[in-house]
Amino acid sequence: MVDARSEDAAASFSPLRPKLMRIAYRMLGCVADAEDVVQEAFIRWIGADRGEVREPEAFLRSIVTRLCLDQLKSARRQRETYIGPWLPDPVMEEEEDEDVTLPLMRALERLSPLERATFLLHDVFGLSFEDVATTIQRDPAACRQLASRARTHVREARPRFEVDKQRGVELAEAFFTASRSGDMKALGAMLAAEVSVHADGGGKRSAAMEPIVGFDAVMKVHEHLAALFQKNGSTLVRAGFVNGLPGFITLEADGELQTTALEIKDGKVSAIYVVRNPDKLRHLH
């Protein structure tokens, strides 16, 4: 039986949960870990003296950020032993995310946990350096330095919107059709000369162990894949935006889901990000 205290905590926490999830996911790149962090924040909220909390959102944001900082220490060790390229869990969105795209999330991986937190809270979520300082328990001057270092590392990965929503979905659908049907001429017309493929199987499903780089190499891989698709099938589940990039979810011949996200530059596909690790796709079911 739920007591009145828990009901009161849930009523004040629920409207903030989506924003807290956005912070936690963008800090960690893992949906399950973000959910765990937000749930732990809720448990702490139940036990807090809420009458003394003047700004619940700031209070909970601090809890979530600090829990994420703790989590990142162990996550970094896990990434060092990860099999093949690591990509963040795919999140399917109706609209393109104008703040954090998949390339930016990959760039954030190169930052220290504090740089990552400062960059996200200030540059993405719009907090003042004073509020960031309170959240991560550093002084504002230190936060400015952390943000400056972070920007230097991620400058090239900041979102650059090359296509509008409708055109993005059309490109994703056209890419699916060409890659699955074996229409190499149509597929080749979409690809940039420096196109690359990054596939995350996590050692659980087959995937290239290193990025595949260059037009010829990517075309060769897709010629091989097209033969497999035509033999075994690959069904489009949904097209939209995967981590802010045009993309789609497919159901593959082994009965597992897969996501594909396309980075677009100058009207061409410059990078293809494929997540096949089933552990990263459970939330999409």
Rank of each mutant, 00 (worst) to 15 (best):
A32W: 10
L228N: 01
K231S: 00
A199H: 00
T81H: 10
E194L: 03
L60A: 11
L127C: 06
Q145V: 15
G240E: 11
F125I: 08
A192C: 02
E109I: 08
G84P: 01
A75C: 11
V37D: 06
V37M: 10
D183A: 01
T259E: 06
A178E: 06
V53Q: 08
P90A: 07
A227D: 00
G202L: 05
W86L: 09
E57Q: 13
I83N: 03
S12W: 10
R138K: 13
V31D: 13
L121M: 11
L60D: 11
A48N: 04
R54I: 11
A227N: 00
L111Y: 04
M219T: 00
V2I: 15
R17D: 09
E130F: 04
L262F: 01
F175L: 01
L108T: 07
E210N: 06
A24E: 05
E40M: 12
V275P: 04
E93K: 09
V237H: 08
I249S: 02
L281W: 03
L281M: 06
E263C: 04
V91A: 08
D131N: 11
V195F: 03
S179K: 01
D200G: 06
H224M: 03
T118M: 10
R238Y: 08
D89E: 10
S234E: 11
A4M: 09
A226K: 00
K220D: 07
E35T: 14
I63R: 10
E55V: 10
Q39N: 14
V124Y: 12
V91H: 05
D89I: 08
S12D: 13
A142Y: 11
Q78M: 14
T118L: 11
S206Y: 00
G51K: 03
D131G: 06
Q39F: 10
D3W: 06
A172G: 02
S14I: 10
A142D: 14
V38L: 05
C68L: 05
A41Q: 06
R76Q: 13
G240L: 11
A75R: 13
K204H: 11
R79I: 14
D131E: 15
T101D: 14
F125H: 13
T81C: 04
I63A: 08
E93A: 13
R22S: 14
Y82M: 02
S148F: 12
E55Y: 12
F176Y: 15
V218Q: 00
A226W: 00
E256S: 02
S112E: 14
T177N: 02
D183L: 01
A261Q: 04
V221M: 12
L111N: 03
L228H: 00
D216G: 01
D123N: 13
R155Q: 15
E55F: 10
